[in-house]
Design a protein around this nucleic acid. Structure first.
Length: 552
RNA sequence: GCGCCCGUAGCUCAGCUGGAUAGAGCGCCGGACUUCGAAUCCGUAGGCCGCAGGUUCGAAUCCUGCCGGGCGCGCCA
C-alpha cells in the first residue's frame, strides 16, 4: 500500500514533467518501484530517471535530481529522497508511516491481505485428475497440495474458484483394473486366473478382492464380464482417494466424469466442427486432427481405427466445455509427464474459435524422496511407489503440505524424510508455526499479568524504533502485495519463503527484546506489534492451507 | 534428433516485470536458558550464479551456441 502511494506520486510527477516540457511521454509506464537490497539505498527505489534519460538522451542524474527535488517535498511520507548510483532515486520513508502498519493490520485482522483484484473472475482449477486405479502417489500429492494452495490464493484475491477433478472410468486403464481385481479374486479362491500383462500389482488390489470374497463368496467366479470387479474396485479406490485428500484438507467442488461428455454428444460435436472447418480428415481408418495447420510438427489421431477416441479428443471437448460453462480462466495443474497434451488441447480450442489464452497450465516437476541421504526408489508400474497415505504414517498433514509448497512448481522437489520427520530444530514447518504459537503465548502471558492492550488509537506506536521492529513492519506492509502476486503468478511457494523469513526475524527479535517490560507505553506498542505479527502469520499460513496453532 | 523444465555455497533451494556489494535453510565448528515457550537465539567459514559469446548505463535474470540432468516426443493417458 505504501508502494502504491509512491507509484501514484511518481505517475503524478511524471505527467507534471511532461506538461512542463521537461521530457516527453516516451517512458510512460515502463519504470518500476522496487525494494532495494541494501538499507543505505532507502526503502524504495525507482529507475524512472534512467529510463527517461535513455529515451530523451539526457543525463540520468540530472533527471533524477529533478525528480528527487519534486518528490522530497512530501514530508508526510518521506524523511529524504536521494539520488544515487547511475541515476536511481531512493526514497527513505518516515518511521511513522511504517509504524502505522500495525494499525492497518490489526484493524483488518484476518481480512488483512485479502483483496478484490480478481474482480469475481470465475476460475476453474483442475488438478489431481487421477483415474481411480490406485492410491494417490507422492506426485499426485504434490499436485493436490499445489492446486489447493493456488485455489486458496485465488479465493483470497477475489476470484470465484471451482476446484474440479476430471476422471475417466470407462477407458482401457479401468478395464485393466477390473481384470487385475478379478485375477486376484480368483487367486484368493485358489482358482486359476491369468494376471493381465500390464495389470496393477499393488497390494490394494488384494484388499479389494478380499472384500469381494467376503461379500460375494465365489459367486463371481464364472463371470465373463469384468464390470462387477471394475465397479467395486473403482468405488473402493475412489473412496480412498477422497479420504486421502480430506486428510490433506482438500475438497473438490466437482468431480467431472469424462463419460458425460460422450453422453451429451460433446465429443462427436468437436469432431463434426473440426470437419466443418477442414481441420479433421480420415486416413488409414483413423480420424486425424490437422494440427500442422495450427503450427505443430505433425497431425494427431483423434479417433483410432478401432473407433475409440484418443485421450486428446475428449480433452479438447472437456476444455471447450469448461469455457462454455462460463469460466473466465482455466487453471490446470499437470505433472511434467503430461506436458505433451497441452499444445493439442490449446490448438483444439483455437480451432473451435475459443480463446486459448484463457488457459494457464502449471506444470510441476517430479518429486523424489530421500531418506538418510539416499534416494528412495519409486516405480509406478511395479506398484512399489510411495503413496501419500504412507507419507502420513510418518508425518502430519502440515508437514506434507509445507514441503510440497516449499519449491516452485518448475523445480524438481526433493522430499527429505529425515528433515520432515524431525519434530524440532531444523524442520521449517515447526519453525514457522512456533513463531505463531509464541506470539499467541505472549498475548496469553499479558492477560495473566492483567495487561490489556489499550485502544489502538491511544497507543504510541512511535515507540517502535528498533531496526528489527521497523524491518518486521516493512515485511508486514509488503504482505498484501505478496498475496496478490503469488495468486496471479500461481506461485504459492513465495508465501512459504515470506513466512520463513518473517519467522526468522521474529525469533531473533524475541530473543533479544522483551515485549512485556516494565515500561507501560513500550509494552503497549510491542503488544500491538506482536498482535499484528500474529495476524499475518495466521493469515499467511491459512492462505496456503496450513494450520496456525496457538500452542504446540 | 526435436519440444518443455532445471543447472546459484558441501547438500536442498529462493532471487518478483533486468537494477546498485548474490540470499536462506540444512550440514560443520564454537557459544547462550534464575527473563514473555531453548521446537529458539548468537557467532565463524563457505560462491568465475554450468561454460562461451551477445544486447544494455546495468545480466543469476533477456538472446544465441555448447555442456550436464529431468520429463515428454504413440492409433497409451
Amino acid at each position: 500500500m505504501i508502494k502504491e502511494r509512491i507509484k501514484e506520486l511518481l505517475d503524478q510527477y511524471f505527467t507534471a514533467g511532461v506538461d512542463q516540457g521537461l521530457w516527453t511521454n516516451a517512458a510512460a509506464g515502463s519504470y518500476t518501484v522496487e525494494l532495494p537490497k541494501h538499507a543505505s539505498h532507502g526503502d524504495f527505489s525507482t529507475n524512472m530517471a534512467m529510463l527517461i534519460a535513455r529515451r530523451e538522451k539526457k543525463n540520468p542524474r540530472e533527471v533524477a535530481s529533478l525528480l528527487a527535488e519534486k518528490m522530497g517535498g512530501d514530508g508526510d511520507l518521506f524523511d529524504k529522497v536521494e539520488i544515487a548510483g547511475p541515476g536511481f532515486v531512493n526514497f527513505f520513508v518516515r518511521d511513522a508511516v511504517w509504524q502505522s502498519v500495525v494499525q492497518s493490520v490489526c484493524e483488518q485482522g484476518y481480512g488483512y491481505g485479502l483483496s478484490q483484484i480478481g474482480r469475481q473472475k470465475k476460475v476453474l482449477v483442475e488438478f489431481v485428475s487421477a483415474n481411480p486405479t490406485g492410491p494417490l502417489s507422492i506426485g499426485h500429492g504434490r499436485q493436490a497440495v499445489l492446486g489447493d494452495a493456488i485455489a486458496r490464493l485465488l479465493e483470497a484475491t477475489g476470484h470465484v474458484v471451482m476446484r474440479e477433478y476430471y476422471y475417466n472410468d470407462a477407458g482401457r486403464q479401468m478395464r485393466v483394473l477390473g481384470e487385475s481385481t478379478r485375477a486376484r479374486y480368483l487367486e484368493l479362491l485358489e482358482l486359476s486366473g491369468e494376471f493381465p500383462e500390464e495389470g496393477y500389482q499393488g497390494e490394494y488390489i488384494y484388499d479389494i478382492a478380499r472384500k469381494l470374497v467376503a461379500e460375494k463368496g465365489d459367486s463371481l467366479k464364472d463371470a465373463d464380464d469384468v464390470t462387477p470387479f471394475k465397479e467395486t474396485a473403482e468405488k473402493e479406490i475412489f473412496a480412498d482417494i477422497v479420504e486421502t485428500l480430506q486428510r490433506l484438507d482438500i475438497k473438490f467442488d466437482n468431480y467431472y466424469n469424462e463419460h458425460s461428455l460422450y453422453e451429451k454428444g460433446l465429443v462427436d460435436d468437436v469432431v463434426a466442427r473440426l470437419r466443418d472447418k477442414g481441420l479433421a480428415y480420415d486416413h488409414d481408418g483413423a480420424v486425424w486432427f490437422k494440427t500442422t495447420e495450427l503450427g505443430q510438427e505433425q497431425d494427431r489421431v483423434i479417433i483410432k481405427s478401432t473407433g475409440e477416441p484418443t485421450y486428446r479428443l475428449p480433452d479438447i471437448a472437456y476444455h471447450r466445455e469448461k469455457l462454455k460453462r462460463g469460466f473466465d480462466w482455466l487453471v490446470n495443474i499437470f505433472g511434467s509427464d503430461h506436458i505433451a497434451t497441452v499444445p493439442d488441447v490449446l490448438a483444439g480450442l483455437r480451432a473451435l474459435g475459443y480463446d486459448d489464452t484463457k488457459v494457464t497450465v502449471v506444470i510441476h516437476q517430479f518429486v523424489t524422496l530421500t531418506r538418510e541421504g539416499k534416494q528412495v526408489k519409486m516405480s509406478t508400474r511395479k506398484a512399489n511407489f510411495v503413496t501419500v497415505d504412507e507419507l502420513f504414517d510418518e508425518v502430519g498433514p502440515d508437514v506434507i503440505r509445507f514441503f510440497f509448497l516449499m519449491r516452485k512448481a518448475d523445480s524438481q522437489l526433493e522430499f527429505d524424510l529425515d528433515l520432515a520427520t524431525k519434530e524440532s530444530q531444523e524442520n521449517p514447518v515447526f519453525y514457522v508455526q512456533y513463531a505463531n504459537a509464541r506470539l499467541s503465548s505472549i498475548q496469553k502471558k499479558a492477560k495473566e499479568k492483567n495487561i490489556a492492550r489499550g485502544p489502538l488509537q491511544d497507543v504510541s506506536l512511535k515507540k517502535l524504533t528498533l531496526a528489527e521492529e521497523l524491518n518486521m513492519l516493512k515485511a508486514l506492509a509488503s504482505y498484501p502485495e505478496l498475496v496478490e502476486s503469488s495468486a496471479l503468478d500461481l506461485s504459492p511457494h513465495r508465501i512459504i519463503f515470506f513466512l520463513m523469513d518473517l519467522a526468522g526475524q521474529f525469533h531473533s527479535y524475541y530473543n533479544s527484546h522483551l515485549v512485556i517490560s516494565d515500561e507501560p507505553e513500550l509494552t503497549q506498542a510491542r503488544l500491538w506489534l506482536a498482535e499484528a505479527l500474529r495476524i499475518v502469520f495466521h493469515n499467511g499460513l491459512r492462505v496456503v492451507g496450513l494450520s496456525a496453532p496457538e500452542s504446540m
